[in-house]
Design a protein around this nucleic acid. Structure first.
Length: 190
DNA sequence: ATTCCTAAACATC
DNA sequence: GATGTTTAGGAAT
């Protein structure tokens, strides 16, 4: 009958629970003393000294850097780490994520406070060559966030969508015409 | 207004 | 069929 009906109301039911979790995302920055947030310029100047033409530097850049720094730097001793998400795949990183997930609620049932862009970015950054096939990204997310293991198949589409979005942002000038599965050069530039 | 999520149609490979 | 791209609508902040 009406495949279209019964969809709108469903979404709302999920919102409330997620909202609180999502708020946590922003809360990360907000939770931290404003000094940290205000200290942002630090990273900016670093970025600048490297490249003078930051005209193309869009939002996702600082977003990822900031968020990742905040998350990984969540530990008081992780400050010495050269790489922000060096161990997200390792043991320490796992605890970070687990901690975050557990903090918001169930460790395996709650949706990660990370946006798809973050998730994808993390997965790719974890990769040795900063490039992963879409399938690998799915796997990484599934491994770290079992929530998706039981979630509707909609998230896959979302991942792809975000992938393309980021790509669009950078408007890659390389030959991405034949990207058949193993190319995420989009973030490779980050 | 901005950001993000979700769904879906469409194009290619 | 999987991947990639693009549109459109809606919800939360």
């Amino acid at each position: 009958m009406g495949p279209i009906i019964g969809m709108s109301p469903d979404k709302k039911a999920e919102s409330p629970g997620v909202v609180e979790d999502r708020a946590g995302l922003r809360g990360v920055c907000g939770t931290l003393p404003e000094d940290e947030c205000a200290a942002s310029p630090l990273a900016t100047s670093l970025d600048r000294s490297s490249s003078s033409g930051d005209e193309e530097l869009t939002n996702l850049n600082w977003l990822h850097e900031n968020l990742l720094q905040n998350f990984t730097l969540g530990g008081p001793e992780a400050q010495s780490s050269p790489s922000p998400l060096f161990d997200i795949e390792g043991n320490h990183g796992a605890s970070v994520i687990s901690s975050t997930a557990a903090h918001t609620g169930d460790s395996v049932k709650s949706k990660p406070p990370f946006s798809f862009s973050l998730l994808i970015y993390m997965a790719i950054e974890q990769s040795p060559s900063k490039s992963l096939p879409v399938k690998a990204i799915y796997g990484w997310i599934l491994e770290h966030f079992p929530y998706f293991s039981s979630a509707p198949p909609g998230w896959k589409n979302s991942v792809r969508h975000n992938l393309s979005l980021n790509k669009c942002f950078r408007k890659v000038e390389r030959g991405l015409g034949k990207v058949s599965g193993a190319n995420l050069d989009v973030f490779r530039d980050l």
